[in-house]
Each structure stands twice: as structure tokens, then as C-alpha cells.
């Protein structure tokens, strides 16, 4: 199994006719993902065609979901309209909305988060690479690729990866695959200060997933989400966990690319987070090159096989 999505999950793409959305819709179709619908207001009735696929486009998420049975949406719409796109998924009662869009105003996300509290739909992102559940085929083809991550670096397996950063997720996934292991699901939760799904939310799902045998938790400076996840792991998670925190050398008060990666106080520095990881029994990767090895060390300590 996997978490949140399986190779059978049907997805729709909001913003499929934009350049960015179209490119990644094509890559997901090539990967073998069940991409069944596109949504672009005003373009309903048209088709998105790629390599023999003919994906119908709808005017609304409601229509797309009703006609195709899609339960997950991936959002590529521009920042001023992205909050609205998320709310539309929630109103349509989807299981999952994955917002790739970078640069959404924080106020919009504060309002969206308030509006979706208690609703059925889970939000991942925004400003995230999305998630991948690898498939059985060559280079993990046949899996479910939602977002912008490279599918081919994955391999079906038993390591769960959760991260705020896209390229660091790829580093971790690639290291795991290079060691002949694989991933159950890799999840990028995004680098914004207000996001839908936290590290802890994903950790809880990995903990309950019988197919996930070990977890890599990748964090950054700013906020306290990694600390919250680590404390929960200490008390509830029996699986081996490795952790990495980026931004040890970032100066205080400067925003490091991600809107959320900014050191405001003593609690959200890399050093403070690493100290909590160690205290909570998480094997710390000293450098990003060390992430998969750190997980192997953690697994060896617990006598767990990740194969």
C-alpha cells in the first residue's frame, strides 16, 4: 500500500491549459498516472491531448469530478486565483487537493485554511512539489504522480519521505532508490508558512501504513512543525525515522527562498530543531548526502529491514 494515493487514484488538473500545468499533466500521463480530467473555466468541452491520451476539460471541479470519478485535484493556477481553486475542490467534496502554486499571499492562505477547517478535503501545499506513489513498472512507471516531482527517480518500496522542499525530497528519494530500496509514498508538503498538511499529519499516516517500514523527515528553519512531529514520533512511532534540517547557516530575519524559511526566534533555528530530533530518537543526517544512510542506521538500531 501507500498513503493518500495509490496507482488507481483518479486525478484532475486545475489549470491544465497553462504551460506549467500542461507540461506536468503530460509527464504524469507518461508515468501512467490515472489523470482523467482537466479544469479550466471557459474551456469546458475541449480536450487535452497527449501521446494518444484524450483528457476531457471541464468548466468546474464539480463537473469534472461527477463525470470522471476523480477524487484528487492538482492545482497549477496562478497565485491570485489559487486560493479560490482550493475552495472549489473543498466544495466539490474531493478527498485531496494538492496545490503546487508558489507565491500565494499569506492572507489568502489564512482565509482558505480557516474556511476548510473541519471539511472532508485534505489540502497538501501550497508551494509544494506534490506527491508520488511509485508503480511497479520500469523506473516506477504505473504509479501515481501528482505535481512536479520527477517520477523516474522513484522505486516502489517501503520508505516514506516527507519534506517541505522539492529538490531535497528528490535528493532523499534518489538516495533511497540508488541503494536498491524504494518508497511507499513521497510527500512534499510545501515551503509556505501556512499550509494544509503538516509534517506531523503525514508522519501519522506513515505510522499507520503497514507498507511503510521507515521514514525520512526533511525540514527547514522557521516555524515549529518539525519539532511538533518529532515529539509525537518519540511517543507514538515505533518505525525508524531519519531527519534532516536545512538552513543551519541561514542568517536570522532573512527569508531563504521559501516564504516559510525564515528564522524568527531561538526556537526555529536549525540547531534547535536538530537538538529536538536527537532528543526524540530521530537519526540525524549530518549533511543532505547522508539522508538514506541515516535511515539505514536508524533501521539497523531497531533491527528493521527496509527492503
Amino acid at each position: 500500500m501507500s498513503i493518500l494515493i495509490t496507482p488507481a487514484t483518479k486525478i484532475l488538473v486545475q489549470g491544465i491549459t497553462g504551460a506549467f500545468g500542461a507540461k506536468h499533466a503530460q509527464l504524469s500521463l507518461d508515468y501512467g498516472t490515472q489523470l482523467v480530467a482537466g479544469v479550466t473555466p471557459g474551456k469546458g468541452g475541449q480536450f487535452f491531448e497527449h501521446a494518444g491520451h484524450k483528457v476531457p476539460i471541464f468548466n468546474s471541479v464539480h463537473e469534472a469530478a461527477a463525470a470522471t470519478g476523480a477524487t484528487v485535484s492538482v492545482i497549477f493556477v496562478p497565485p491570485p486565483f489559487a486560493g479560490d481553486a482550493i475552495l472549489e475542490c473543498v466544495d466539490a467534496g474531493l478527498d485531496l487537493a494538492v496545490c503546487i502554486t508558489e507565491g500565494i499571499p499569506i492572507k489568502d492562505m489564512i482565509r482558505v485554511k480557516r474556511a476548510i477547517t473541519g471539511k472532508k478535503t485534505r489540502l497538501i501545499g501550497p508551494n509544494c512539489p506534490g506527491l508520488v506513489t511509485p508503480g511497479n513498472g520500469e523506473k516506477s512507471n504505473g504509479g501515481c504522480r501528482i505535481g512536479i516531482a520527477p517520477g523516474y527517480i522513484h522505486r516502489k518500496g517501503h520508505v516514506g519521505v516527507v519534506s517541505r522542499s522539492g529538490t531535497l525530497t528528490y535528493e532523499a528519494v534518489f538516495q533511497i532508490t540508488s541503494k536498491g530500496l524504494g518508497q511507499s509514498t513521497s510527500v512534499g508538503i510545501g515551503g509556505d508558512p501556512v499550509n494544509g498538511t503538516s509534517h506531523l499529519d503525514v508522519i501519522k499516516l506513515f505510522n499507520e501504513d503497514p507498507d511503510t517500514k521507515g521514514i525520512i523527515l526533511i525540514g527547514e528553519i522557521g516555524g515549529s512543525a518539525e519539532v511538533e512531529a518529532a515529539r509525537w514520533i518519540k511517543d507514538h512511532c515505533k518505525k525508524p525515522v531519519a531527519g534532516f534540517i536545512a538552513g543551519a547557516t541561514a542568517p536570522a530575519g532573512r527569508r531563504m527562498g521559501h516564504a516559510g524559511a525564515i528564522v524568527g526566534g531561538a526556537e526555529d533555528t536549525a540547531a534547535a530543531k536538530i537538538a529536538v530530533f536527537q532528543e526524540c530518537g530521530i537519526e540525524v543526517a549530518a549533511t543532505p548526502t547522508d539522508m538514506a544512510d541515516a535511515l539505514l542506521r536508524a533501521a539497523a538500531k531497531k533491527g528493521v529491514s527496509l527492503a
Binding site: 519534506s163 517541505r164 522542499s165 522539492g166 529538490t167 531535497l168 525530497t169 535528493e171 515551503g191 526533511i218 527547514e220 528553519i221 534532516f244 536545512a246 538552513g247 543551519a248 547557516t249 541561514a250 532573512r254 531563504m256 527562498g257 521559501h258 524559511a261 536549525a270 549530518a286 549533511t287 543532505p288 548526502t289
Partner: peptide, 27 residues
């Protein structure tokens, strides 16, 4: 010179880890 904010931050970190000093963050 790096692609991705997380990787760019950790590139600075790894330079420091091996005793160097980063001149910038660049994504």
C-alpha cells in the same frame, strides 16, 4: 548556484560543515 530553495540552503550548510564559508544563497 543551486536549484531549489531547500537544496540551496543545504548547500550553504554543507559548505560550512566542511569548514568553508558560503558567499550567498542562490536559487
Amino acid at each position: 548556484l543551486v536549484n531549489g530553495a531547500g537544496l540551496a540552503m543545504s548547500t550553504m550548510d554543507i559548505i560550512k560543515h566542511y569548514g568553508g564559508n558560503p558567499a550567498n544563497f542562490l536559487d
